[in-house]
Write a protein that binds this DNA or RNA. Structure first.
Lengths: 180, 180
DNA sequence: TGTTATCTACCTATCGATAGATAGACAACA
DNA sequence: TGTTGTCTATCTATCGATAGGTAGATAACA
């Protein structure tokens, strides 16, 4: 992995653990094994780095989810897949969703980072809405509402699990969105 | 209002807007009209201040919710009251829930602040569970699950509304927990 | 020989925290 | 009634550490 990729990955890990105001160029440089000036070479400002990290995260996350309208996979399975992705983040990795963290801090983010964070939520909600729309008993408006609800619940569930230091809090919180 | 009270109130406002790492003794001092050393007089460390703010917030919030088991008020009305409290925070005040913000940042909080944040969630979940348990079609285990789900959803809904800059995102997200 | 990437060395600004001083309120006591 | 001591709340000034960021030299490499 190149230093550039290492910087992005390290930044993602740190933001997900400690937030945008909780990491520094020096810390990233130490982990990667370079000097902070070298991090500034790749990302002139902290906002540049944050925006790239958020965009890469969004891309990676959506790629893992796959096509929400592929007929071979039932909507219920897809929702379960979505929850599993978040479960892995908080239970296995013990970290927040990157954009859940950034979303909480949105008022102190540089514009370009706030924009990418918004895009993450828009794309995730669109994905979820497409899945819910495939369910027999759900209309278009209902699907969008469910998508917002599910998105909010998984983000909140990650906060709960970390604060209560109880991975099972995540399971309890998301149970209702899993059982359509 | 005494300087002490002003400090606590200002700190709450700043944490809810910008997070625990997003405010400083100097900023609070400037708003209140004293020097930062005077804030340290009342709260020797940042953790001391954060813990007092979190505890006061929890107390205030639960007081506003009232008794979850008073028979004159239906469970449905109580859940609506809960949502209304959060709606006021995010739509009118345009701020996060204090403990939603602190919960996201829990990994960088001093122990005493993390503890108070945890207490907030425990008490809120207990309150919600008592309300849900009064509903005809809900058992004890189901009530607890619903409480976790509702707690997670409102916190996530506040993040969504702020990040998407759309107050209506809050409404869409919490709709399902309102309609039992 | 350029280009890309990294380095050393530094900047200014701010952080949380502390030391030491002071003005005024209040109480104890000769 | 004065005097003495203590407490509260604030001040000025400063600490070491760290923040984000930059200029210019140097190294690696196509």
């Amino acid at each position: 992995m190149s230093k550039l990729e290492e910087i992005i990955e390290t930044a993602e890990t740190m933001i997900r653990e400690r937030g945008y105001n909780g990491f520094s160029f020096r810390e990233i440089a130490d982990v990667v094994g370079v000097k902070s000036a070298s991090v500034h070479y790749h990302f002139p400002t902290k906002g540049d780095l944050g925006a790239v990290v958020a965009r890469a995260y969004t891309e990676k996350f959506l790629l893992a989810l796959g096509d929400p309208e592929v007929e071979k996979v039932t909507p219920k399975k897809l929702i379960e897949r979505y929850i599993e992705a978040c479960r892995y983040a908080v239970v296995t990795q013990r970290k927040m969703c990157l954009c859940g963290m950034l979303g909480a801090e949105v008022a102190v983010l540089p514009d370009e980072v706030a924009r990418e964070t918004k895009v993450f939520f828009e794309k995730n909600i669109a994905w979820l809405a497409k899945v819910y729309a495939r369910m027999a008993n759900v209309g278009a408006a209902g699907a969008l509402g469910r998508a917002y609800g599910a998105m909010a619940t998984v983000e909140g569930a990650m906060i709960l699990a970390r604060t209560l230091k109880d991975p099972d809090a995540f399971e309890k919180a998301v149970k209702q969105i899993a059982t359509s």
